[in-house]
């Protein structure tokens, strides 16, 4: 279970998407998500799927990885689809006991599922092609104007970096502790919710203690490397807006127009 998490995973590469400035990519993801919620026709979704497919192709990352990223939301997908299918009022197609499936229900269910999948794929495109460091740099830059009003942009960015850095380490550690306690006969699978929650103590306490120890050691190591906040800090990699960034931004109004245009075409059933 633990190993299925691809969230925050980065695949190094040299594709067009990899080369875009992370700030531009962040802006794009924002636009992508907002416009996704404006899409409400089959034509619009076709357009979105095609664009997303082209972007995946451009990124050079295997399609499989995107599907893997969707695994954690499968339950949510099915759940919302089913709810929408049965709970939407409208012209019934067939009945299942007291439940009826309506035409509108199917339409909304399919659209909702597509929207969720595109949402995950779109954000995955960002995280797969942008190193966490670049991403946090971008966030730091975007936030830096607010540092005058007391937003600690550099500290936020540092915290994010460390969090991302330690996710795999802590996951591995959790796996180890679970196995160690299982080897001592701990049972995490039987009993009611209360018993199961109580059974988590032998995992959580060691995990917390270890996390604090790590934090402590890391803080000392950072101090030893002269860390003293963002003041006077330089960077190995400078963010620079280049020509392709500007060019890519020109596509934003194009996408906007296409989406608005698609809203006018509600074809037949869909």
């Amino acid at each position: 279970m633990i190993r299925d998490i691809t969230l925050g995973q980065f695949f190094p590469g040299k594709s067009l998407l990899h080369r875009l400035d992370p700030r531009v990519k962040l802006l794009w993801v924002l636009v992508y998500i907002i416009l996704l919620f404006l899409v409400n026709t089959a034509l619009g979704f076709t357009l979105y799927v095609v664009i997303t497919a082209v972007l995946i192709k451009l990124s050079g990352i295997r399609v499989k990885m995107f599907f893997k990223g969707m695994r954690p939301i499968v339950f949510l997908l099915v759940f919302t689809a089913v709810i929408n299918m049965f709970m939407t009022a409208g012209e019934p197609i067939f009945k299942l006991g007291f439940l009826s499936v309506t035409k509108e229900g199917i339409r909304i269910a399919v659209f909702m599922a597509l929207r969720l999948m595109l949402l995950v794929t779109g954000t995955s495109l960002l995280t797969f092609t942008t190193s966490p460091i670049m991403l946090t740099d971008a966030i730091e830059r975007i936030l830096s104007p607010f540092s005058k009003i007391g937003v600690p942009a550099d500290a936020i960015a540092m915290m994010m970096t460390i969090a991302i850095r330690f996710i795999p380490t802590i996951l591995e550690e959790t796996d180890k502790i679970i196995k160690a306690q299982k080897a001592r006969g701990a049972d995490f699978e039987s009993g009611n919710i209360l018993a199961r929650a109580k059974a988590m103590t032998p995992i959580l306490i060691p995990l917390f203690i270890s996390a604090f120890r790590r934090a402590d050691e890391l803080a000392v190591a950072m101090e030893c490397r002269c860390y003293h906040g963002g003041e006077g800090r330089t960077r190995l990699k400078q963010l620079k807006i280049s020509k392709i960034d500007i060019e890519s931004l020109c596509f934003i109004p194009v996408l906007l127009i296409l989406v608005i245009f698609s809203r006018q075409f509600s074809l037949g059933l869909m």
């Binding site: 190193s131 120890r213 790590r214 190591a221 330089t234 960077r235 190995l236």
Partner: peptide
Amino acid sequence: VFQNPDNQLVATIVEEDVAFGPENLGVEP
């Protein structure tokens, strides 16, 4: 340099981590 290598690497990419010290010292990129 400390005992546990995991607890002294700050960044998620090797070269970014190596750069951490000089960055803190304000060295030119």
